[in-house]
Computed example of a mutant assay.
Amino acid sequence: MKSEPCQLLLIGIGGYGHYYIEAIQSFEKQGILKLVGIVDPAPESAPDWAELKKRNLREYASVEAFLNDPIRVDLAAIVSPISFHMSQSCALLRAGINVLCEKPIAATIEEVAAMKCARDESGKFLEIGYQWTFSPAIQELKADVLKGCFGRAEKLLTRVAWPRSSAYYQRNNWAGKIHNAQGRPVYDSPVNNATAHYLHNMLFILGEELHLSASPLSMTAECYRANEIENYDTACCKIETDIGADIYFYTTHATETVDGPIFRYIFENAEIHFSHGKDIVAHFEDGSQKTYGSPDGERMHKLRICIDRCSNTSTQDDICGVEAASAHTRCVNAFQKVPVQTIEKSFLEQTTRGANDTLTYLPQMESLMHEAYEREQLFSALDLAWTGKPTHIEFDTI
């Protein structure tokens, strides 16, 4: 007998919520999902609102409003700002609802601990939406890592340069901020938002079980600010992990052109390479190769997996639960201990992207990131005039 479709509550229909709505429409056509309600304090500002309001959906201004007048829901997808992830996830879990919460899991490790407690007490699942982690390509790659196909992990490196103009920082009241207008921590930065996937993925690949990430032991990092924001828009780091492999991560929004994500994972018997738009390929010492496909192919595979879990058509354990996602948050919290060095305007250039929209960038930033990445060094080691000293942090001190 065909099971009933999974009943979904979508929290946040603007911004990234658009991609959820596209996926929801596809899954509804397959008969496996039904969107029954939305939560958004200002739904009329979302581009999909005109179509959504034609449907027979329950509308709520907040999660609290939903809980005061609930309908049957199997799964809640949280696509709200970072500062709401903990409170909304905990409330929904305690109401007996499974949760798929967008990345990052939360702003602070204290919030992560509260979410773990709520999940454990509820008996429901809490998945965090790092879509690379859910992709078949990454799942197969990690399975091979755990089988020992590549030998011992030595070092993992990733670089990603994504331009973000002034419109990006003006789109809400918390972009580029440490705290939002209500004083809640958001720690918004490329590390915790746009390029969070790629630091998380290195931690996840090194985890000693399929549902775990490696634990960071220490970090040496640099944070820079080209834009007139509170937090940083450029960072690099070297992280020592509990399994003995080092992680190098380079990220910036202060760039004129798009570059990456690009990674090189170095193991005892193989190197694994990926460039955006291509497949992950393992190159073995004996000259053989194995291709895993692209981790970018199925953005909403995470939602499909959660639907299957709710419909009892899957016995899958957590793929990216609290245990996998929390290592990234620990790194984000460590970054917040690193002094942000403001780059002097004389080193920067600007270009107009549109009406009241300006891109501020470091010339040749992508080539500088490439050099640091290839040399396995932080920006300060390149003897650049705008760099400062790195900061070293031991994780038992954060």
Rank of each mutant, 00 (worst) to 15 (best):
C6T: 15
I11M: 11
Y16R: 15
H18T: 12
Y19G: 07
A23D: 08
Q25S: 14
E28Y: 15
L35H: 04
V36Q: 06
D40Q: 07
P41G: 03
P47F: 08
D48N: 14
K53P: 08
I71L: 10
A77D: 08
P81H: 12
M86H: 03
C90D: 08
A91I: 14
L92K: 05
L93A: 08
A95W: 02
P104I: 08
I105R: 03
A107Q: 02
E111K: 01
A114S: 11
L126R: 00
G129S: 05
Y130I: 02
Q131E: 06
I138H: 03
E140H: 10
L146W: 05
K147A: 15
R152V: 12
A153G: 13
K155A: 13
R164Y: 01
R171V: 14
N173G: 15
K177T: 11
N180R: 06
S189Y: 00
Y198K: 00
L199Y: 04
E209D: 15
H211Q: 06
A214P: 02
C223Q: 05
R225I: 14
A226H: 04
E228C: 13
T241I: 13
I247S: 04
F249V: 04
E268V: 09
H276R: 12
D296T: 07
G297D: 15
R299A: 07
T315Q: 02
D317N: 12
C320R: 00
G321H: 07
A324E: 00
A327F: 07
H328N: 06
A334N: 02
K337H: 08
T342S: 11
I343Y: 03
L348E: 01
G354K: 11
A355S: 14
N356W: 03
T358K: 04
L359S: 01
E376A: 11
Q377H: 05
A381E: 15
T387V: 07
I393P: 04
E394S: 14
E394R: 13
